[in-house]
């Protein structure tokens, strides 16, 4: 984390993942670009259906029919993950890149003990013997804070609470010491006191093992507490990207501003909350132009016509701060194919 030379670990460029359904094409992820450096924690924030989970599933190659990655590039340590064969990808998945999910209880196999499930990872990727793998698994369970791990390793998933199940998932994900962990809403299903424990654990493992984390959440509070950089997604696109401090201090995109102002913050009592009017659009028939335009009050206030006609490009407005909004984009320029 404290390394002076920042090395990029994963770079996603112009990723497009579409779902070809009977009702039409759902552009779940549409031209998403971001990167994560070694040892960094990057937050991906947005409301349900904005494409944050599909982005992460695209990275580890878990998109299944009717979905398809139709365009883009995912560079991981110099190789494009989208061009790898199934075997090559399997070798990276669970080994170099791991993922944990929102519902730990349903992500674990109910008919095997948790020890077996954690050990299995080592048997598959390292070809370890059952006994050796078991010992490592118990050691890992203790690292993620499972009390009396040598006993709990024999427990089945239904015997664990939500928080403990999530710890087991983290143990499984990190036992190969991957350099990238994708955490998809890891604390959403947990109670607030347990959420604090799990976030603390992830923070600690990030420091200790240097695992970079892509944290996907809808909770701006979680992001503020743990991430270094943030990308805000709306309707399949990243609309703003910056460091956490900048995002909360100086949000530029009207959606980001609206989102930050619409949540009640502990200790800052307001009489009324600010409101983003309207609803999240359906990804099948997205409005032409900017997807946020129909809900955007800044657009009407500034009399911008172009928002309804054309989608703006990501525009850098400061070092490491990019926004996709016509308020900050030069309209006269014919949109060049921008490079990241």
């Amino acid at each position: 984390m404290s390394d002076k030379t920042v090395k990029s670990l994963l770079t996603v460029s112009h990723l497009k993942t579409h779902f070809f359904t009977e009702d039409g094409v759902v552009k779940a992820v549409d031209d998403v670009s971001f990167h994560i450096n070694e040892g960094e924690i990057v937050g991906l924030v947005g409301e349900s259906g904005c494409g944050k989970t599909v982005t992460s599933l695209s990275i580890i190659g878990l998109i299944s029919k009717p979905g398809k990655v139709v365009d883009g590039e995912i560079l991981y340590e110099g190789q494009d993950l989208l061009k790898l064969s199934y075997e090559q990808l399997s070798d990276i998945r669970g080994n170099r890149i791991s993922m944990i999910f929102q519902q730990p209880q349903t992500s674990l196999n109910p008919v095997f003990t948790v020890g077996e499930q954690v050990a299995e990872v080592l048997q598959i990727h390292r070809g370890m013997s059952t006994k050796e793998a078991w010992e490592h698994a118990v050691e890992m369970l203790s690292q993620v804070g499972i009390p009396s791990p040598e006993k709990r390793a024999f427990a089945y998933p239904h015997e664990l609470s939500g928080g403990q199940a999530q710890r087991v998932m983290i143990a499984m994900a990190l036992i190969m010491k991957p350099n990238l962990l994708i955490a998809d809403e890891p604390t959403t299903a947990l109670d607030v006191t347990i959420q604090a424990q799990i976030l603390d654990l992830m923070r600690g493992l990030n420091k200790k093992m240097g695992t970079a984390i892509i944290l996907i959440t809808h909770d701006l509070g979680v992001i503020a507490g743990i991430a270094g950089r943030v990308a805000v997604m709306y309707a399949g696109k990243i609309v703003e990207q910056s460091t956490v401090e900048t995002l909360f201090e100086d949000p530029r995109h009207p959606y980001t501003k609206g989102l930050i102002n619409s949540i009640p913050i502990l200790g800052r009592v307001k009489n009324r909350l600010e409101v983003i009017p309207g609803v999240v659009p359906n990804l099948i028939d997205l409005p032409q132009g900017c997807a946020f335009a129909p809900r955007c009050e800044a657009r009407t206030a500034n009399g911008l016509e172009i928002c309804a006609e054309q989608m703006p490009d990501m525009t850098p407005i400061a070092d490491g701060h990019e926004v996709r909004c016509w308020l900050y984009t030069d309209q006269d320029k014919p949109s060049p194919k921008k490079s990241l």
Partner: peptide, 23 residues
């Protein structure tokens, strides 16, 4: 629980109490 709730402000400076154990 007040200290555990994530606050949407990276600069929020406060006491952090992390309760052990589960409910």
């Amino acid at each position: 629980i007040m200290s555990a709730i994530p606050i949407a402000d990276p600069k929020a400076n406060r006491q952090r109490i992390i309760l052990e154990g589960e409910v």
